[in-house]
Computed example of a mutant assay.
Amino acid sequence: MTEKIFLTKTETLLPQIGRSVSIGSKKLALFQLSDGRITAIEDFCPLTGGPVLEGTVSGEYLYEPLRDYKISLIDGRIQDPDEGQLKVYELLQEDGNIYLKGTAL
């Protein structure tokens, strides 16, 4: 059986709008892409030191709100010419609920 941590209900997400979820001291940003996929990344940009939650989503990318860095919501990689990586979290969706898969934060 896969370990999982409840994050939120699917119905609470709006397409292309971030939703903050906290697990202990860790903050995650959940996003529902325009094609319906749901992704989760850490809500912290290593380049600006600020949150990414309120960035603009376009396709599979998030434009970081302070400096407009382009971040992949699929693998967390900050796109060229900038460099960096945000942690991406694996999710499970069951019966209208979204769970963090496993326990590694």
Results as ranks from 00 to 15, higher is better:
residue 65 P to V: 15
residue 88 V to N: 09
residue 38 I to F: 04
residue 81 P to G: 03
residue 61 Y to T: 08
residue 33 L to S: 04
residue 23 I to K: 14
residue 104 A to H: 04
residue 104 A to W: 03
residue 102 G to L: 09
residue 36 G to P: 09
residue 35 D to S: 11
residue 54 E to K: 15
residue 12 T to H: 14
residue 41 I to P: 09
residue 86 L to C: 06
residue 25 S to R: 13
residue 99 Y to C: 02
residue 45 C to P: 01
residue 56 T to V: 14
residue 21 V to D: 03
residue 65 P to L: 10
residue 68 D to T: 03
residue 92 L to Q: 12
residue 52 V to E: 02
residue 7 L to D: 00
residue 18 G to L: 06
residue 45 C to V: 06
residue 100 L to Q: 04
residue 97 N to G: 03
residue 101 K to N: 14
residue 12 T to W: 10
residue 17 I to P: 01
residue 49 G to P: 13
residue 19 R to Q: 14
residue 11 E to V: 11
residue 57 V to P: 04
residue 102 G to R: 10
residue 22 S to T: 08
residue 99 Y to A: 01
residue 28 L to N: 02
residue 44 F to D: 00
residue 39 T to I: 02
residue 75 D to V: 11
residue 14 L to I: 09
residue 65 P to G: 11
residue 103 T to E: 06
residue 21 V to Y: 02
residue 64 E to T: 15
residue 93 Q to F: 00
residue 81 P to I: 02
residue 4 K to C: 08
residue 29 A to F: 05
residue 71 I to W: 10
residue 34 S to K: 13
residue 12 T to V: 04
residue 54 E to Q: 13
residue 16 Q to G: 00
residue 82 D to H: 15
residue 48 T to F: 01
residue 54 E to P: 00
residue 94 E to A: 07
residue 31 F to K: 09
residue 98 I to P: 00
residue 79 Q to P: 02
residue 9 K to L: 03
residue 72 S to F: 05
residue 68 D to V: 05
residue 71 I to N: 01
residue 72 S to W: 06
residue 94 E to G: 00
residue 32 Q to I: 10
residue 101 K to G: 05
residue 14 L to D: 06
residue 95 D to W: 05
residue 24 G to S: 06
residue 95 D to K: 14
residue 73 L to S: 02
residue 15 P to K: 13
residue 21 V to I: 14
residue 2 T to N: 09
residue 75 D to W: 12
residue 83 E to G: 03
residue 23 I to L: 15
residue 58 S to L: 14
residue 79 Q to I: 02
residue 13 L to S: 01
residue 45 C to G: 00
residue 75 D to A: 11
residue 93 Q to I: 12
residue 73 L to T: 00
residue 100 L to C: 10
residue 70 K to V: 08
residue 34 S to L: 15
residue 25 S to L: 12
residue 34 S to H: 14
residue 65 P to I: 11
residue 88 V to W: 10
residue 39 T to C: 10
residue 17 I to W: 07
residue 29 A to V: 04
residue 65 P to K: 12
residue 89 Y to H: 15
residue 12 T to G: 00
residue 63 Y to I: 05
residue 66 L to I: 12
residue 64 E to W: 12
residue 102 G to W: 08
residue 14 L to F: 01
residue 11 E to H: 13
residue 22 S to P: 01
residue 8 T to Q: 09
residue 58 S to T: 14
